[in-house]
Design a protein around this nucleic acid. Structure first.
Lengths: 185, 185
DNA sequence: TGCTACATGTAACAAGTTACATGATTAT
DNA sequence: ATAATCATGTAACTTGTTACATGTAGCA
């Protein structure tokens, strides 16, 4: 259900056509809610049927025309109601945790390599986030209302990644220190 | 695809019937991969068709009979191959992050309450994890091979929750300190 | 009497993924 | 030439969720 809300939240910024929306779901919004453009087009159609967004066809010279979507008053109310309704923690579904759980069925070296791989990916992601932080939120104390929430969202992404990175480092250290007892084939 | 792997990983411990499998997916396994029993039954059927698990009907007195599933040699090889294949970071899809992103459309108090709600939920979850840690992994240095991976999986859950908790606390502090500039209706 | 636990499923629907399809413009 | 960008979609499939359906045993 929350893809609808993620789209509405993005359209609260300003109207977007499907193509541009999808680009936001690759970048900023996509860091905490990813969606393919097929999903976005499908959802936009549904949101329009429900009267939560409204589209306007805009013809362009030397480019395909676009349908630009904007949130209606009903859409904004719908979004507000959803935000006001308490929600549960996002459920976790993590391949790497499944791998770790069954780690005893492969040589330890295999798990160690995968941990190092993920450690590197999380480091890279954190670097990207820090870059954005420096560029857009250098002075978090003096941010206008809207940007303040964007800043906190970004901080959420950073803390999330830090959690995984800390774990990767600790798990690598642990498996390395206890490798004497490893029985590799 | 990874539900299949999560089931195989669980069945590597010992054979389970669908009902008991589902219980594991409520508790331990469910902390990093949840699945409803409808999903589990459906997937078990498919895994059996593919020859990755094998079931045995066991009649019981004064209880319904059960189908107990065990991993086949092909199933174990399949699981090993999957673990050896590097995977991407798990994609994030988090309602609370969407709410934060669009936080400016509701009074600040609304967001603060939701943050406190999530803070409490993460604290509770961490308490549960710490309890398991003390009960089952009091001496991580001297764990047998298999339990060692279970311990690291649990540590992953703890770090993950810590990441979110740290963020909740920081975001609450930030919004509280900067509430002077809030424009509540 | 009604609730929980045991045990397994079907059906319908919603959400997410992968592949296919079209067609113009602009940059290399 | 050909690749990338802009712009929108359909079709088929897999996953995940919700609701319905059935029946026994044991407990309060």
């Amino acid at each position: 259900m929350a893809l609808a809300h993620a789209i509405l939240a993005t359209l609260m910024d300003r109207p977007y056509c499907g193509y541009d929306l999808r680009k936001r779901f690759e970048g900023s919004v996509g860091f905490f809610w990813q969606a393919s453009f097929q999903q976005i087009y499908r959802e936009l159609k549904k949101l329009e049927e429900q009267g939560l967004v409204h589209s306007e066809a805009i013809a362009q010279e030397s480019r395909p025309g676009k349908n630009v979507f904007a949130v209606t008053a009903e859409g904004e109310a719908f979004l507000q109601t959803w935000i006001e309704t308490p929600c549960e923690m996002a459920p976790l579904r993590d391949d790497l945790q499944v791998k770790m759980f069954a780690g005893f069925v492969v040589p330890r070296e295999t798990i160690l390599m995968e941990l190092q791989h993920h450690q590197a990916m999380h480091q890279e992601r954190i670097a990207v986030y820090h870059q954005i932080e420096q560029n857009a939120f250098a002075n978090p104390e003096q941010l206008p209302e809207k940007d303040l929430f964007r800043y906190l969202t970004l901080r959420g992404g950073i803390q999330y990644e830090m959690g995984w990175l800390t774990w990767c480092e600790a798990a690598i250290a642990f498996l390395t220190q206890h490798s004497a007892s490893a029985i590799d084939p």
